[in-house]
Each structure stands twice: as structure tokens, then as C-alpha cells.
Design a protein around this nucleic acid. Sequence first.
DNA 1: CTGGCCTATGCGTTTTCGCGAATACGTCAA
DNA 2: TTGACGTATTCGCGAAAACGCATAGGCCAG
Lengths: 128, 128
Amino acid sequence: MTSSDPLPSQLAQELDLLHDRVCRAIGDPKRLMILYALHERLRYVVELAEELGYPQPTISRHLAALHNGGLVVKERHGQTVIYSLRDARIITVLDIMREMLRDAAEETARMTSAGADEDEGAGPDPAS
Amino acid sequence: MTSSDPLPSQLAQELDLLHDRVCRAIGDPKRLMILYALHERLRYVVELAEELGYPQPTISRHLAALHNGGLVVKERHGQTVIYSLRDARIITVLDIMREMLRDAAEETARMTSAGADEDEGAGPDPAS
DNA sequence: CTGGCCTATGCGTTTTCGCGAATACGTCAA
DNA sequence: TTGACGTATTCGCGAAAACGCATAGGCCAG
């Protein structure tokens, strides 16, 4: 913290970049699936396509998004292209979020069954 | 892990929810700024609006998105509404991502200056 | 009740994003 | 070179999301 202006524009810059790379990359359920699939082991495109049940061009596009975010590494092996996670911390991050989600759901459940005030109406449902 | 199908649909379900709540909530640079602002201290709407330099309705809408994702807590105090982080782990998560970004940029810089093969063309730029 | 402050919402517009289908590109075998 | 296979890209479309602006709703003082 340089602690001079209200909210440093340097932070804004970095968060813009963060959003553009990472946050946008994980902003799609199918891409989350791909990341977890790659966490098990490295894979090539058609493998992912079959396993997740989506057409190959779709998978390819999503992989491009992940690669552009620097979350994933390409490597040609003959005609196939092997993809793998560049940094396993992305899974750590997603797991923390999942935990947060579970905890929040639990808490909401407690408030709904027992007392009943919540913070203010809306908020997340336990599930859907 | 029910360990039966290739990629458990239970995971898919959970990741869908994760995306719908958290990932979508952090999918905008302004909202990232709001989260970090709330991490410093709790704030009310106009305060955020002035500090970040956006019109009040915009802030209100973004806060609604964050609240819907369960990342933020509302609390009325007279005419003003105080917002605060529900779970500081979201900042932990974002900080990890920022670190990943820095590390990746560093690595890319090394490959660009020294050798020069990268994984395959595209990938993230050191900055922009 | 009335006016003023703080917050939320509707509306119309513009941009972004993911998709399906078709196709181009790249690589290897023969 | 030709054909086959794996991967990437283009195009048109429809859905979702963010914005600016105006305005509605909530709450308190007088």
C-alpha cells in the first residue's frame, strides 16, 4: 500500500489486468470443467471434447480463452496438441471458492431454519 | 467423487453454481475495485461512488451483483446502507491470482529475453 | 404531510460472449 | 502430392451484461 490517494490507480490497473486475464478466463462453467479435467492429467483436444460432451470447436475456443489468460499451456505432439495446467494454484483458488460457497450455504440454512433475519432479503440460495 | 463416470456430473453441478455466484460476481473490474475497497473498511454506497468515480446507480447495481453472489453483506443504518465483505477469503483468492499473474509475467519475460520458445505463440503479455 | 437525502430499479442502447455450422490450417503417412 | 486426421478460425446469430439517464422507493427531520 503506497497509502496516498483514496484508492490507488495502480491497483485499478492491476485489477483490470487481473480481470482481463484470469477472471474472464474462469467466467464460464465449461472452462471450469476443463480446468478440473486438466488437473487430473494433461489432455488433448478431442479427448476433452468427448469427455465433456461438447463439439471440438467449442472446446478449442475455450482452450484459447484459458491460454490467453495464461492458465493453460499448449504443446504440440505431432498432429495433436497437449494442454496442461500452467499453475495448479488456479485449482487451489477454485477450491477455496467452493468452500466459501458451502460455508455460505450452511450459514444461510442456519438463519433460515432457526431465527430469520439475513442481512437484507436477496442473497444466495442454498442451492437453486 | 462417486467415481463412476468419466467426469462426475456432480462436479459439473457444483461448478455451475460456483460460476453463477462467485465467478460471475468477480467478472468485472469495477467489482474487483469495490471488493478491495470494502476490504479496507465497510462503506456506504455514495462513498464508493465518489471514491471510485462512478455514478451511484452503477455502484448500486454492482453491489447488487456482489450481494447476489454472497460476497457482500448489506445492513441498513438509517437512510444509508452499509456494505461489507462477507468472507475475507475472496481477497485471499484474488491476491493469489495476482501473484500467479506476476509469476507468469516474470516467466514470460525470462523466456522472451533469454531463449525463446514459449509454449505456442499467443499467451499473456507481460502487461499490455 | 412534506421535502430532502440515500439507495434501488426500469428502460433503451451498446457491447460482449458463447454457440453452431462450415471451413481453413497444420501435420503426418503413403 | 494427396488424403486423412487433429486443431484452429471465421461468420452470423441470439442471449446476456453494463451503461447512462431518469425515476421510483425508503427513511428521517421539520
